[in-house]
């Protein structure tokens, strides 16, 4: 019994450390960003202007804090850019990833499945900076010269698809490349769920006269709903936090809300990287603290999205059957 008790304590300590790290990070950022939080107030989320102020002027006092004259921190455009690019990525990647999983689990012979799956998982292992550079040199010129002009010309009657197609940097490009990065996450998870799924479920549907497709679509995929949502949460987290690739292809818009799907954007994660150097020039330190507040807000969004997805799952579970 002694050994079990020791082991339990050991795992409890390790588990506690993991939880403590998360809490410590949040607490640190709250303390660090506190002056910025007090100064910026709610305007931080509703204002669309990020301005470091005059770096060459003497700091002035406001609300008991020294700040640069003209300094103003608002990140509405960042929130919009982050949420919209993630939305595009997830909306594209979940069905594509699920379909790819179905293909791997059902259509590829089991001898070949390992090899094909290996390549899918390899796709997940590509460093994001590689995706970013590829997006920069290949995807952007192609989309900017060929696809987006065609889309405005032929699909311009749809909202958000009209207007100037730009040069290829922007919201849709970021969404597409993000989608490509998260598809393998979804595919690998859902494929595992399908392969390990209880066969009787499939057989039951077939025995009732369902076709292979109907079986997949109405029984097997719905039965993986939990896994699908779970992998969607993971993928959303990855898309929200993706930094390097987005930095290289999003157009790095400043103080600009996207007008259409081709508009340049910035995301919170990439903005922190691109602005850190400038922010360090601020002698009052408030710019870096405001970036800390951006990080805190990103963390908050991730938690809210995660919580919302789990809540959705909880309600679906309670009323299973209404969605078959």
């Amino acid at each position: 019994m002694f050994k079990l008790v020791t082991f339990r304590r050991f795992t409890a300590v390790l588990g506690g450390v993991v939880a403590a790290v998360l809490v410590a990070v949040v607490v640190f950022f709250v303390i660090y960003a506190w002056p910025a939080i007090r100064l910026n107030g709610w305007h931080f989320f509703t204002s669309n202007t990020w301005n470091l102020g005059n770096l060459y002027a003497n700091p002035i006092e406001r609300n008991g804090r020294m700040i640069l004259p003209g300094a103003h921190y608002g990140i509405l455009f960042l929130i919009a850019g982050t949420l919209l690019s993630t939305l595009i990525a997830v909306v594209l990647a979940v069905p594509i990833g699920a379909m790819a999983a179905v293909f791997l689990a059902e259509c590829v012979p089991s001898q070949l499945r390992t090899a094909v799956s290996f390549f899918v998982e390899l796709l997940a292992a590509i460093p994001s900076v590689v995706f970013g550079l590829w997006g920069y040199v290949v995807v952007i010129p192609f989309l900017g010269h060929h696809v987006y002009p065609w889309m405005t010309a032929h699909l311009g009657f749809l909202p958000f698809l009209s207007g100037a197609p730009g040069s290829g940097y922007g919201l849709l490009t970021a969404g597409l490349v993000l989608a490509l990065m998260i598809v393998p996450l979804i595919t690998a998870t859902v494929r595992d769920a399908l392969v390990s799924q209880y066969r009787g479920l499939r057989d039951a549907a077939l025995a009732l006269g369902a076709t292979r497709f109907e079986t997949l679509w109405t029984v097997q995929l719905p039965a993986t709903r939990r896994v699908l949502v779970g992998s969607g949460i993971l993928a959303t987290g990855r898309a929200l936090g993706e930094t390097m690739a987005v930095l290289m292809i999003s157009g790095n818009a400043l103080n600009y809300l996207p007008r259409n799907i081709y508009s340049p954007i910035s995301t919170m994660a990439s903005f922190i990287v691109s602005q850190l150097d400038s922010a360090l020039q601020d002698p009052t330190g408030l710019a870096v603290r405001s970036l800390g507040e951006v990080a805190l807000a990103l963390l908050l969004i991730a938690v809210v999205v995660n919580g919302a997805a789990r809540l959705l799952l909880y309600y679906q579970d309670r009323t299973t059957g209404t969605t078959s």
């Binding site: 009787g200 039951a204 059957g321």
Partner: peptide
């Protein structure tokens, strides 16, 4: 053929749906 020849399995295998939707499944797909 499978519509005419039903099969009951060794291990009960209801779908992860409601009772009603389980029974109605065969009607729907057919």
């Amino acid at each position: 053929l499978r519509r005419r020849v039903g099969l009951i399995f060794q291990r009960s295998n209801p779908f992860p749906f409601s009772i009603r939707d389980n029974v109605a499944y065969g009607l729907k797909v057919n």
